[in-house]
Design a binder for these strands. Structure first.
Lengths: 188, 188
DNA sequence: TTCTTATGGTTCTAAAATAGAACTGTCAAA
DNA sequence: TTTGACAGTTCTATTTTAGAACCATAAGAA
């Protein structure tokens, strides 16, 4: 399987991975969400080679995730700004950060805390069902083939591994905050 | 920056990317959530080379994302099963699928639909604030340095690009379903 | 017994991607 | 006239990946 084929697979996950599924691209996007916009800024904060950076930026622009906007004329200079399509990657970024916060922190705790301006509190992102508002669990999701074909996307591990305490990290787990939204039916 | 350094950066995103941030790993995980568990199953459905597959599986086991469990003795055979740490990747997977569903589908529509067993409806995943239950928008999130150090994680693009209709795809956007949970304070 | 198949790898070589460093080009300011 | 900032491009060396063949164990068939 080549990367071009990946983009054409009838699977939303494969297609997304074909676009943002490599380390540098993800890190560049992190910088974008950190409001970095310029070539030099990306290069110096990531330590990516200029060659690769140029290539990745081109790809992100081609894909409509970044826009290349002139910010000065004399020597033509551009900056790279997230489009709406790019901003829509935010849940992916937050999900990645949250997993890292849960499973990859050292004793010192998480590197960054997030505050929700709207409610003023430190929070964790929680993924819920758009229809009933309950938190999504893998085992409670069922997949159906959609109009776009072939069925490979993320479905539920129906017979979920029961995790018989096979010596994984024990401290890391279950720090996840339960959502306490105003008044959704209580999560089980 | 080398990949080993990446794992040590005080950034939950970098650390997560160091573990799952490459194309094959993400695709292998997709298969895991599709309940594939065996070497041959991964290999034949992904078309990954056996060499790389073996390496990636080892890494995922080392990281505690998969467990290698014997399922027969005579010729010793094992299967790879998601641990809780692995199952916790579900929101990342769903976020990736959802972005693909929104931005990477062709005319035929999405390849797979998701049904929430609990409420019986086809849904979309929505990411909300654990504290107030409102959907999370990048611009409404503020970051603070946490105890774990240095501040590089996903914060808000404070001065969000206003997306002045610079010829991106127009059909693709805004298919996102608004959450309609029982009775949270209405999203703006 | 010998052959074939199933499974889960390992070992090669060639091709592709990445790292690292140097170089180009434009303009402004010193 | 030189230096510096910025945004790249070009080059070679190293590392990863692709692709195919090979190895090992055991069951079952001929």
């Amino acid at each position: 399987m080549k990367w071009k084929e990946l983009e054409e697979e009838p699977c939303s996950m494969a297609r997304t991975i074909a676009v943002i599924g490599d380390r540098w691209t993800l890190l560049i996007l992190r910088e974008c969400f950190l409001r970095k916009r310029r070539f030099e800024a990306f290069q110096s904060s990531l330590g990516i080679t200029r060659h690769l950076l140029a290539e990745r930026l081109k790809k992100l622009v081609r894909q409509g995730i970044l826009r290349r906007v002139p910010y000065q004329e004399s020597p033509k200079r551009h900056e790279y700004i997230l489009t709406q399509k790019g901003l829509d990657l935010y849940p992916i970024m937050m999900a990645i950060v949250h997993w890292g916060d849960t499973h990859m922190v050292d004793e010192r705790g998480r590197p960054v805390l997030h505050e929700h301006k709207k409610c003023g509190k430190l929070f964790e992102p929680v993924m819920i069902c758009s229809e009933c508002g309950e938190p999504l669990l893998a085992k409670e999701v069922h997949t159906h083939p959609g109009p776009g074909g072939w069925a490979a996307s993320v479905p539920p591990p129906a017979d979920l591994p029961s995790e018989p305490s096979t010596g994984g990290p024990k401290a890391a787990r279950s720090k996840t905050v339960q959502p306490k939204a105003k008044s959704r039916t209580r999560a089980a």
